[in-house]
Design a protein around this nucleic acid. Structure first.
Lengths: 247, 247
DNA sequence: ACCAATTAATTGGTTTACCAAAAATAAACA
DNA sequence: TGTTTATTTTTGGTAAACCAATTAATTGGT
């Protein structure tokens, strides 16, 4: 017999905004709302959905962030000129944009940073180099003082992201960093002497960026991230096995 | 003498929420708000900043999305346990997460998709393969009918993203897609017969994913994205020259 | 019938008021 | 004095009200 705790199912709290997003999706798919159309006024939607206007606005805000709606003050909110195909595909997954899948997080970070470090090596300015060096030294000092320098490590990586001169890639890494930190410190992923070996890796990365050697930069970064990447790879492999079994 | 139009500076409308975010950042940096602390109540912030509570909530919402705050209902909003270093670095750039840098968009997409297609080839399920085929056929039909199948193209790529089984990477691609579509159709980037040559490229990508050949998948995708990638590369090169000149 | 100007209605932006759940405090009891 | 129970205050969640700008409608004149 199963224990009690196993029967406790995660309470799914479909928030009001998610409901609204789902409803809007239905409106679009059913053809009542064609791309390019103007949405009903917020008040109307509020009444129609039986929810306060605050929620409507919040939902619109979210959809706007994803580029699916565009609201013009004093005029109305409009559906992006995208075909139903695209909108449907995207809306379905907006709600579940959760960053709590640790393996996915690590993997995304791995690939992003590998690309980023190459771009950084190619495009870094002298200012980038300077702030990168500062971040590196801050990390080394923290490690020398005996603290866990996870956050200083992240700052180092943020600086690299900044040096790419690509605001989109930078933003993506920025979004991932807090969650990475949270998970890493919670799970104490890396061994104790990891911090010290990382110092040398950082210096290699820095040197490669300084000399604008893209290949060497990528190699150094791959080495730096390898240990933690292995964890995510193992995670995905395990997931794959589970899926096979279920089939 | 400069013409009139050149003197018209872009009106910078620092939205209320951005102001609030900046203020909160100051509170944290100045030490009045240490990581882990509870924020003042929304009402208090509202009064202190001289702005409505809606704006406070919106700002908190945004900061929460970035993992910098955590709000517990009926209890309070708390600053994530990150060091000031990290928070400062991130908040500074949150506001400028705008996806209107076309070159950055293209470049980010290029790298993301190259990684994604490899993962998709490795992990695709039979269901993935099926929906991918469907999307591919929809594209071919649209092209055959003479339409610009930009959106159908994007759906094809979304399906690939889904096959990665990595929710983070999928979400990132999802976020970029609407902006990519907007820019591509606006600028009519690709030549007229591009759509037809793309059909063959899609089939190559599909075949590679089907046979789970990661290397071939990446190669095919690189070929598929090459033309548009060249545009972004040229853009960044131009930017680089400008920076050199300014120095 | 057509056009211009004025008025009325509608829009999203913003603030305020109200609510139930938590937390903190006070009071009552052992 | 220590603990438990009421009670009050504070919290974020929610809904409604107000505002200025915009748009649609109406009106009056031609």
């Amino acid at each position: 017999m199963k224990s009690l705790i196993e029967n406790i199912t995660a309470i799914q709290v479909e928030s009001p905004v998610d409901k609204i997003i789902g409803q809007l999706k239905q409106l679009i798919i059913s053809g009542q709302l064609k791309p390019g159309d103007r949405l009903p006024a917020e008040r109307v939607l509020s009444e129609r959905f039986g929810l306060g206007r605050s929620y409507i606005r919040e939902a619109i805000l979210k959809l706007e962030f994803y580029g699916l709606l565009k609201t013009n003050p004093q005029s109305g909110t409009y559906v992006a000129g995208l075909s139903i195909n695209v909108i449907d595909n995207i809306i379905s997954d907006i709600i579940k944009f959760n960053k709590d899948d640790f393996n996915a997080l690590i993997e995304a970070r791995y690939h992003l940073e590998l690309n980023a470090v190459k771009l950084a090596a190619e495009r870094r300015s002298e200012e980038d180099l300077e702030s990168l060096r500062l971040a590196m030294e801050a990390y080394e000092n923290k490690v020398g003082a005996g603290g866990d320098a996870v956050e200083e490590d992240m700052v180092f990586h943020i600086k690299i992201a900044k040096a790419t001169k690509n605001s989109v890639i930078e933003s993506m890494i920025l979004i991932l960093v807090p969650d990475l930190i949270k998970n890493i410190v919670e799970n104490k992923i890396c061994g104790d002497n990891r911090a010290k070996t990382a110092i040398e890796e950082h210096r290699m990365i820095y040197a490669a960026i300084e000399s604008q050697d893209m290949a060497k930069a990528e190699e150094a970064m791959a080495g730096h991230l390898d240990e933690i990447w292995q964890i995510s790879k193992a995670g995905f492999a395990a997931q794959s096995i589970i899926n096979e079994t279920e089939r």
